[in-house]
Amino acid sequence: MNRLKTATIMLAGLFMLVTQACTNTNTTKEKENMKNTETEEHYTFELSDKVTREKVSFKNRYGITLVGDLYLPKDRGTEPLPALAISGPYGAVKEQSSGLYANEFAQRGFAVVAFDPSYTGESGGEPRNVASPDINTEDFSAAIDFLGVQPFVNRERVGIMGICGFGGMGLNATAADKRVKAIAVASMYDMSRVTARGYFDSMTPEQRSQMLEQLGQQRWKDAEAGSPAYGTQGLPEPEQLTGDEPEFVKGYVNYYKTERGFHERSINSNGSWTATNALSFMNMPLLTYINEITPRPILIIAGENAHSRYFSEDAYKAANEPKELMIIPGAVHTDLYDKKDVIPFDKLESFFKENLK
């Protein structure tokens, strides 16, 4: 229990650094990193020789242009395909984990769009590197719009796959969007809960009040500067690790900051959120209506040793049947980002094929 408390404190500290640390002005280097959409094509996985990938774009309900990759099986026959919209993890881009998932699903007979959320990656929206429980939920529905008008997609057989923070967004989208017939999430985060209440709900009312006070003061600074400030500190570089960090810190660094998962446009690899990014998550709970997803099925997947496991367990408790919670023995949070020998793709395939009908 003491180790858990220590890990909780360190995780909360890391979260606060990433979300609250700020500068009065954005540096030239940060601007170059955030606005770089001309990066040479770089994916953290190999495209299957059984799959095609095509860059696509579509607009969400707010007029923001989203950019995604459409993955299709080369041998898809003549019948319209079941389809999936995929995004996540929080702070990642489509060339990372969501693309890997899409590539795998396409091999198994699905039409899949993996997309960059609004204000991130190659998608539109200003300022850059902003997240929103509302707009990012809408991004999923916009992807469903896109899939449903494709002639090779059966719009009655459409689902969502959400990873990490976009697991929570995906569940929120499914609750409101009855077109979604099934949803699966992996290493799910409830970003509104962790932002508003801290990890393991450890934030005190005084800390919450202080955080809101700081965010309000930062808005004055941004207004005076005419542009938003950005976080001054994100994940440490691999060489900065001492070895004493909790597993989750090592896991994030090992994925986002090494060849395994690094991508130039990924916020977690090469940037930071705006200093006021936490604001909208502070009082807009994502999973308020999770019980209204029923009778559409939910599959929730989490690692046995993941620091985020409690989000999945609590979402499972809040949801109505039909639902399933799958705990992967020995797995940690980031194992479900890209480790194909850990991610239960056979289970995911059978779940969606059984329920997208």
Rank of each mutant, 00 (worst) to 15 (best):
A173R: 00
K59Y: 12
P295W: 10
A306W: 02
I301L: 13
I160C: 08
A142G: 04
Y337C: 02
A173G: 04
T276P: 01
S269M: 06
N172G: 01
T6E: 15
N355K: 09
G271K: 01
T23S: 15
S202A: 15
F152T: 08
V194E: 11
A225S: 13
F115E: 00
I293H: 00
N26I: 10
G216L: 03
I328G: 02
S266K: 03
Y316S: 06
H263R: 08
R76E: 04
E213F: 14
T334I: 12
Y289E: 15
G167K: 04
G226H: 02
Y199S: 06
A106T: 06
L11N: 10
L325M: 11
R179S: 01
I160M: 00
S118L: 05
F140S: 06
S269D: 04
L66E: 09
G226W: 04
Y62H: 15
T288N: 10
N36V: 05
T204R: 00
T52C: 10
N305P: 00
E138V: 12
G109E: 01
Q150A: 08
L235D: 06
Y101W: 03
E304V: 07
L70C: 12
D177H: 07
N305A: 07
I327F: 04
P228V: 12
M211P: 09
A7M: 11
H333W: 08
P297N: 11
K353I: 00
M16R: 14
M1R: 11
Y256L: 03
A83T: 05
G77H: 09
F345T: 02
N60D: 13
S187A: 15
T23A: 15
